[in-house]
């Protein structure tokens, strides 16, 4: 079994209205159902973390930009780590991710054991 990092990218236009508590709750449920389903297969290593939108990016020329999304069109919203036999299986498990339903994407990267 290998471990894979799943990076969740979301497409959030600036100034988009904040979701209502009800929307938040529904979205939370979708995430929990998806992660719960992976965990039920004993393939969840860590449910990882969700990230705030605000952040800074530090470049080699010491210019600090406000916003983590300099070069990346989509914002990284969080990450999880799963366990899978192959890249194909990791991709298969990622297909249920709720972020895909709201125009986001999941980047699947195999973790190199140190």
């Amino acid at each position: 079994m290998n471990e894979f990092l799943l990076l969740f990218r979301k497409n959030e236009p600036e100034g988009a209205p904040k979701p209502s508590p009800e929307q938040m709750q529904n979205s939370m449920k979708l995430w929990m159902d998806w992660l719960g389903g992976i965990a039920a297969q004993n393939k969840l290593v860590s449910n990882g973390n969700r990230l705030y939108n605000d952040g800074v990016t530090v470049s080699p020329d010491e210019i600090v930009t406000n916003g983590p999304y300099v070069e990346i069109k989509e914002l990284i919203g969080g990450y999880s780590i799963i366990r899978a036999e192959s890249q194909e299986e990791a991709v298969e498990l990622s297909k249920g991710c709720p972020i895909l339903k709201v125009g986001g994407s999941v980047e699947v990267r195999m973790i190199m054991p140190m």
Partner: peptide, 18 residues
């Protein structure tokens, strides 16, 4: 119950919980 099992499985997997 489903949501509680979702959370339980994320911290402690067991076949019975699955």
């Amino acid at each position: 119950i489903l949501q509680l099992y979702n959370r339980l499985l994320q911290i402690a997997y067991s076949p019975a919980a699955a």
